[in-house]
Amino acid sequence: MIEFKDIERYYDAGAVKSYVLRYASARIGEGEFVSIMGPSGAGKSTLLHILGMLDEPTAGEYWFLGEPVHKFNERRRTELYQQYIGFVFQAYHLIDDLTVYENLETPLLYKKVPSAERKSRIADLLDRFNMVAKKDLFPSQLSGGQQQLVGVARALIGRPKLILADEPTGNLQSPQAREIMDIFRQLNRDEGVTIIQVTHSDTNARYGSRILHLLDGKVERDEKI
């Protein structure tokens, strides 16, 4: 599903280039549940952002479902993204001015999904996550766990083939964290959704089938579980 070769990403820090990723390569098949681990500054989040098409590599190739993403312009990347990818963030990143319902609706609006279908999809997800009663609340009225639940639901609403999660439980206490991870496992097993998560926690990594260990911008070790 995903193949990236010699991905390189640097930032201009004055006169010198400061490399975050260099010669990072790997292949991820459909249906896998992959965790990316590594020390701070290893380039985990940057790699995830590049895979999620939120950022661009400065060099290297990125193939997604056989398409050369590195050659695409922003518009085509957005199309691809809208169709196949959902993102979950550590800090939830819900839109403060929107209710739970509207937060879930936003990706569908961007995908131009017709109104009736939007309603039924949102209703399904609210039902599934037991959040029907909270649909008119604003994010500030929810607990962290509930917010992240909305965040996951929002990532799922577009029925993605790939979910990218950047330390999805980093801000949560363990019972809530477990709930979120269980949902990921279920999605991966029952619905065949490919999941790539960045995490510091071994416990969370154990939910997956494979761990990519990053060090100094390279995939240093590829561990199968």
């Binding site: 922003e74 993102f87 990706p107």
Partner: peptide
């Protein structure tokens, strides 16, 4: 907000 919206698939 802009970042979130872009990560939700909002085009420019």
């Amino acid at each position: 907000e802009v970042g979130v919206r872009k990560s939700l698939g909002g085009s420019r």
